[in-house]
Nucleic acid binder design. Structure first.
Lengths: 201, 201
DNA sequence: ACCATAGCACTAACGGTTAGCTTTTAAAAA
DNA sequence: TTTTTAAAAGCTAACCGTTAGTGCTATGGT
């Protein structure tokens, strides 16, 4: 309840980071599947139940930092200047996220994820959730109104773009190419307007 | 090696069906999560290991028949008449699949899947695999050539359409709406051609 | 100083999944 | 036919992620 960050919360955060660091170290050392939760707990010198009180699952240990993906995507929609077009804003944000994940020192982590079906599935499931919240943000946008289906569809296309671009040979070019497609898909959902009424009803 | 379907394979198929039937019966009776693999094995009167020698996972027991989803989608691309446009063929096929899953007597099964996060994740992961094979089929199509990225993107959009339409209030209308978007996205990937050269290079 | 509570530990277990090994039984070889 | 092989199924026991139950300790509010 108090404003100052108490010692308790600092300790809790420290334990959390200790666990995450130990886990990542072991995963990169021996491979994700070869390391058990019990190994992680021992390395971090905590109990198994403590691990699960900080992380919902073994996979969540890997995506600890990556959790703000959805937040960033949402802000690309909600925090943009008035009348700034939606799709280019999303394209730029996705481009930045892709760059962050391909050029960063996150290369070994990326290789680890690609090597584990369980991790890939987890990431994809997380993306689905992000698509859901992105869809509601788009639907609430003061832009020209679209149907619920159109918003959910575009949201899904956008998160697909991230996954597709990352796997492409040239991720940056792929973002451009995919977003040309998304832009076209978004355009055809514009409610009909008279040519003399370009602002809409 | 012999041509007639040997007794062995018949018995094996019988065991498989016995297991799948028992599993579905129990799942619908008590709920998916409330039924253990050991319960299924007992109901089918087989050993637990036998269940896993026929099905890769507990979730696979539910999607036993649904495995031809990918096949049907592929045939929509490969088996269509020459010069029949690609996207409408896919739209019709997706529409048929959606209808099959919403109007059929598969309603209780659908409710069961919706109620279990594990099953929804499994289905989504399966769709990703379908998208991959669909992408290669589209890339190999004698249609106007597109980039690998464009093919993979459209494949993903198409399988998204299935998931999105099923969850929509009016699935049939949603298919139409989403495929108008997909059609537009596909159009902008057409390689540049002279207006006097409509067949392409 | 005192107490409510959050954080953590420990044990034990559950449920999906797999490994190792034996038994049955259909199919092929002799 | 008899013998051999190998697939199919069984049993036991375990691994691994995850959770419930319980209690201890230390922190923070009063």
């Amino acid at each position: 309840m108090t404003v100052p960050p108490g010692r308790r919360e600092r300790k809790k955060a420290a334990t959390r980071r200790k666990i995450a660091d130990a886990a990542l170290r072991l995963f990169l050392e021996r491979g994700y599947e070869a390391v058990g939760i019990r190994d992680v707990a021992a390395e971090a010198d905590v109990a198994v139940t403590t691990v699960f009180s900080h992380f919902a699952s073994k996979e969540a240990l890997v995506f600890e930092q990556d959790e703000d993906f959805g937040q960033r995507l949402l802000r690309a929609v909600t925090d943009r200047a008035p009348h700034e077009p939606l799709i280019p804003a999303l394209r730029d944000r996705i481009g930045a996220l892709v760059r962050h994940c391909t050029t960063d020192a996150a290369a070994p982590i990326q290789r680890m994820i690609d090597a584990s079906p369980a991790l890939r599935e987890y990431e994809e499931a997380a993306r689905l959730r992000h698509a859901e919240s992105l869809a509601t943000a788009i639907a609430a946008d003061p832009d020209r109104p679209r149907t619920t289906t159109a918003c959910r569809t575009i949201a899904r296309f956008v998160v697909d773009a991230y996954a597709l671009a990352r796997d492409a040979a040239d991720p940056e070019a792929a973002v451009e190419e995919i977003f040309r497609m998304i832009e076209a898909a978004w355009e055809v959902t514009r409610p009909a307007t008279h040519p003399t009424d370009p602002v809409g009803s």
